[in-house]
């Protein structure tokens, strides 16, 4: 047990930020990609916090019972898909507000996961494997920071693929049209309601997978405080990312890295004002929003049908 080698000193801070960006960003990435897809189709699903927690719980439980963490990821995604379908279906009824339904589903998902997850707090489920990208370094700290989970890699691939798909694929065009103007979509003969339901369901699937990352890899166990608001943060990241999947990727990295900064600075001895450092991700978001906003135009990239813009 001697692989805690000599201290890194100040080099530990950038390393922790990079490592934290990789470790902490994955759930943000999956939830924000899912929400991005849903919002591009013209709906807001605030329930993804509940979906994330439900995914974390169901993924952990499945991994424990089947012994396979990948089965857990799949079931977490399916649980998310169900919640997405529910949101999509309810919101398709006339005069139903998607934000209210989202809040309802957030509470339902959280409560249901806590209720069903009771027996899974103590047992230890098998975790997801990691790819060792730090083999070239002799420093154990670097090796630990560059242990990259497969789900992160999948998320990284998902972002540009989704960007390309929205831009170039026929279905992507349908999603965008439905999101920008339901009337135009109807005129073109696109199925507005079905598209929205499936975009919400697919978004839920991604959010569920993000939850499985929390419980099966980092921090790597099921507990009721596991999410502590990450789902909500990720939903907000989509606006920050201007409804662009690659923007979601960068924003998730930024949030992951900024979240690691507080503990890392304390560990090298910058101990004054740690509450401020812990608040950094949120201060950063505010600053970027203020810099990027303009009174003369609406948010660039915002889907026209989205409730927030009209």
């Amino acid at each position: 047990m001697s692989n805690a080698a000599e201290a890194l000193g100040w080099w530990g801070v950038p390393l922790a930020v990079i490592g934290g960006a990789i470790r902490v960003s994955t759930p943000f990435l999956f939830v924000s990609l899912g929400e991005c897809l849903t919002e591009r189709a013209g709906r807001i699903n605030l329930g993804l916090e509940g979906t994330l927690i439900m995914g974390a719980m169901s993924g952990y439980a499945t991994a424990l019972h089947t012994g396979s963490p990948w089965a857990g990821v799949l079931v977490a995604g399916l649980a998310g898909l169900l919640f997405g379908l529910l949101h999509g279906a309810i919101c398709s009824l006339p005069r139903v507000n998607d934000i209210a339904v989202g809040i309802g589903l957030m509470l339902l998902g959280t409560g249901l996961a806590f209720f069903l997850g009771k027996p899974y707090i103590q047992p230890k489920a098998p975790g997801l494997p990691a790819i060792d990208l730090g083999w070239w370094s002799s420093l154990p700290q670097v090796q630990a920071a560059l242990k990259i989970n497969v789900l992160f890699v999948i998320g990284v691939i998902c972002a540009p693929v989704m960007l390309w798909w929205l831009k170039n694929a026929r279905l992507g065009l349908v999603v965008r049209t439905v999101g920008d103007s339901a009337d135009a979509a109807r005129a073109l003969g696109f199925p507005v309601i079905a598209t929205r339901i499936w975009a919400t369901a697919a978004g839920g699937f991604l959010a569920g997978v993000g939850g499985a990352f929390l419980s099966l890899y980092y921090p790597g166990s099921w507990s009721e405080g596991l999410s502590s608001g990450q789902g909500i943060t990720a939903v907000a990241l989509v606006i920050f990312a201007r409804w662009n999947p690659m923007g979601c990727f960068y924003a998730s990295l930024l949030f992951g890295g900024a979240g690691a900064l507080g503990p890392a600075l304390q560990s090298v001895g910058v101990t004054q004002g740690y509450y401020l450092f812990n608040a950094l991700p949120y201060a950063l978001t505010l600053a970027v929003m203020i810099i990027a906003c303009s009174p003369r135009r609406t948010l660039a990239g915002a889907p026209g049908e989205l409730g927030v813009t009209n």
Binding site: A5, G225, P263, Q266
Partner: peptide, 23 residues
């Protein structure tokens, strides 16, 4: 390292990793 609240699993994991990185 003070995390700021009684139950913050992700921050606790980050704090653990930072401390271990410092030896």
């Amino acid at each position: 390292i003070f995390t700021g609240d009684w139950s913050l699993p992700v921050k606790e994991a980050e704090a653990s990793n930072s401390l271990i990185d410092q030896g």
